[in-house]
Every structure is written in structure tokens, then in C-alpha cells.
Design a protein around this nucleic acid. Sequence first.
DNA 1: AAATAAATTTTTGTGCACAATAATTGACAT
DNA 2: ATGTCAATTATTGTGCACAAAAATTTATTT
Lengths: 247, 247
Amino acid sequence: MHAQNLVDQNAIIESSSTALLPTEEQSVVDLILKAILEQRIAPGTKLGEEALANIFGVSRTRIRRVLLSLSHRYVVELRPNRGAIVASPSEQEARNIFEARRAIELAIAKGLAKQIGRSELAELRKHVRAEADARKRADSREAIRLSGEFHLLLARLAGSKTLSGILETLVSQTSLIIGLYGHRHGSSCAYEDHEEIINALNSKDPQKASALMLDHLEKIESTLDLTPEPTMSQDLHSIFGQIAAKD
Amino acid sequence: MHAQNLVDQNAIIESSSTALLPTEEQSVVDLILKAILEQRIAPGTKLGEEALANIFGVSRTRIRRVLLSLSHRYVVELRPNRGAIVASPSEQEARNIFEARRAIELAIAKGLAKQIGRSELAELRKHVRAEADARKRADSREAIRLSGEFHLLLARLAGSKTLSGILETLVSQTSLIIGLYGHRHGSSCAYEDHEEIINALNSKDPQKASALMLDHLEKIESTLDLTPEPTMSQDLHSIFGQIAAKD
DNA sequence: AAATAAATTTTTGTGCACAATAATTGACAT
DNA sequence: ATGTCAATTATTGTGCACAAAAATTTATTT
């Protein structure tokens, strides 16, 4: 792992989630999380404790808690005695995660449509403008992050810390999934969909809002290639398949 | 805290959840969790590290991780430099938790109705028999635990580790909520409701299954007293209210 | 006696040394 | 070469001593 990948942040730190770690540790969590979600570190990458401790200039004791915390978000996998790696959700897990997102986000959309106000709508529109801007600038990292954060923003506006907390975990995992199974760059949410959802919320139409959310989530899932086994073995087949067939 | 409360378990250990702690630690987690969920330790109770270390005969280092793990489940609250206490979900959090449960469990019921098989139905009926039995024996602890576990069983049978994991957290919190806000003993699920749900699943009727689940969850929530502030101040008022009024 | 402050005790937080385990390298045999 | 085994190196896991903070007790002042 290269230090470059982890400290390269210019932008704002995630900083959401229920703060129960010391602030210093939380910022390391956020940094690593951001790096993973922007796909600067690939799934499967080893996250050595000593290496991280050096990079961030904190003790191993702390790194250890950081890794534990990230593992609770299912963003890193902790293998006993073998260290931490960036998680690689399986194809089955990917489906389950989308299933869970459907359940939760339809409810959020429905609930929000019933009680949304002016200022919330403004905040949403502002966010989507930022998404459009990132896309225009071809800043795909930012675009990926913002499109995930749109969904988190909806959860926050719905006023349930419980649901936001759950969705945070699911959105993080979705980023990993898109990195693993999404072929073309179009995999991340289209901000146009987000605009439509906002319009439905604006017209206080719960049915429409949730229907659009469903379409949107299904669209994202459909851009993925969730047919075969994990990435690695797939590559081997596509590389050696023809040679083996000739035999 | 009395050691009695924590080691008194005769029954089976929870043992679900994604095991990423050493098995020894996991069993301490399960023991404390069980004690909390069966309401043998009240919300707000201090969980001193040294005390727990002595009770369970493990080092403080380990207890520390155990408490961290329980805090991720929102079952204990970790107050920096002030130690851990059993969590007391606020009235608002309680509502949010039920909202989340509705979103998730309706989806589970719907999905399960479409794909449930013979053996799954048998397992569910067996579970409900155990519930009825516990009720008949007036073993309210067991009854509380089993009625929560029925919901977890549904999630497991639905085949999504993601949803089960989320629901586990929510069910744990629900136990705390019932302990805090549920006045009469009838607060825990009636197993009769569970039977009805099973029947709907049996007849592969997704609409009915989810409708019954909704009723069931709303019934539980409605037995709670979620009007006022946290427990303590409420008690003080109900104790001193009349005296103050006389003045 | 009530309130404030100082001193003491208790409890939580952290780094570090060492133990346990896994990964790597090298030697040897087939 | 290829595979197996031993020795070495590197990495993770844990207890403990000490630091930091909070809670409690005692002393002091008004």
C-alpha cells in the first residue's frame, strides 16, 4: 500500500456516524473510509497495522480500534491472526445489500414525501447541483461519493438516526460492490434520477417517490455484472478459457 | 452490579452474529447481551471494566473490546472517560427503531411468503410451540427472548445475512425499549400473532403476510407509553408531583 | 451548616514489551 | 525442477504498567 493513496484527501471529511471513538481516531476512520469508497484502495488490499500506524502517525493500539470500527461497517474484513483487508462482498451479499436498500430507502422516500419542507428540498437540490457539477468536471471520484451521499442525505432529512446509520453501512458496501462488479463508468447513480425523486418529494407524492426510488435502485443494480463468482476466478477463466478449449 | 445477574444463565447462548471476535470474547458478549435482553440488568446500570473482568475472569483488555462490540449494537453506551452503561433509548429513538423494523420486516415477510418451503415452515411452527410453552410455564424471561427470536428466525429464513444482522440490532434495542416504556407484562409479542403470520406465509400470500406483520409491530408499539421524557425524570414527577401541587 | 477547594481514591485510557501465530526464506530430498 | 520440512522473519494478539481523567472523600473557609 502506498501512503499517497490514503492521505490524498483535499475535500471534506465524512464525519457522520455516532461519534464514540476519540476524535483523532474517528478522523483516521474517515480517511481510510473515504479512500476505500473513492476506490483508491482496491478490495482485498492488505491493511497492515504497522503500515497504517506509520502513515497516520498514531500508535498501533489506535489503528487496531480503527480497523475494528471499519469492520463493523463491513468495509474491512478482520481475519483472526491474519490481519485486515479491504472487504470484497460476494455476489450473494451484493444482492442482499440491494434488497436491504430497497426495503429501507422505499420507506424513507415514502415517509419523506409526507413531511418534507422548503428548506429540505432546497438542500436536496443544492446537493444534486454539486453532483451535476462533479460530473461536468469529469471528477468521477467526487461523483461517486456524492451520488452515494444523496441517499444518505435523504435518510438524514427523514429524521431517523437509526435509518441513517443503517443506510450508511449499506451505502459504503455498495461502493465496494460497484468497484467490484460494475464494468462501465455509468454504474454510479445518474443525478437525473435524483432530480426526478426530488420532484416527486416536492409534489408530496409518496407512491411516486418510492416507485422512482425503486426504479433507481434497480437501475443501479442492473448495471452490475452479478452473474458469476468473485472477481479473481472470473478473470482466470476469461484469460485461459480459449486456450483450455483448444486443448 | 451483582455477579448473580450475569452468570445466572442456564439456557442456550445467543451465538448468532458475524463472529469476528475470539470465541471466548464472543461468549462474554452473549452473556451480557442475554442478561440485558432478559432485563436482568436495568438500562443506565454502570458496567465497570474491572468488575466485569473479575466476574468473567478475563482481562480488562478483553472486556474493553466486549464493551466496544456491545456499543456497536447500541445496547451499551460508551461515554468517553466515564465508562459504559446499559443504553436507554430515548422515546424518539424508540419510534425510529420501530419505523426501521416496519421497513425491514415487511420486506422480509413479503419476500419470505414468495419462497418459503416445508422445512422452514416446520421450523417456524416449532419455534412458536416453544413460545407457547414458555408462556404456559409463566417463564416471562424466556418468553420475551423467544418472541424476539421469532423475528430473527424469519430474517434468517429469508436468507439475507445483511437483513438478519440489521434486525438483530433492532431487536436488541426493542428489548431495551420494552423494558423502559412497556408498562404491562403483555408488551412482548403475543405468539398468536406469530401463528397467524406463519399461516399467511404458508398460503404464500405476500400481501397478507406483510399486512399481518405490520399489525403485529404496531400492536407492540401501541402497548408502549411513548409520550413523555426518559424514565428517571418521569419517576420523580410521579413521586413528587402531588406534594409539589399541594404547596 | 453549606459551599468551595484540596487531596485521595477509583476508574478509564494508552503505549509498550513480549507472546503467539502466520508468512517467508532457505535447505534438503526426491 | 518440485515438494516437504525446518529455520527465520514479520505480523498480529495480549497483559501489564503507567498516564490521564473522573469521582469521592476530607479539609478549610465563610
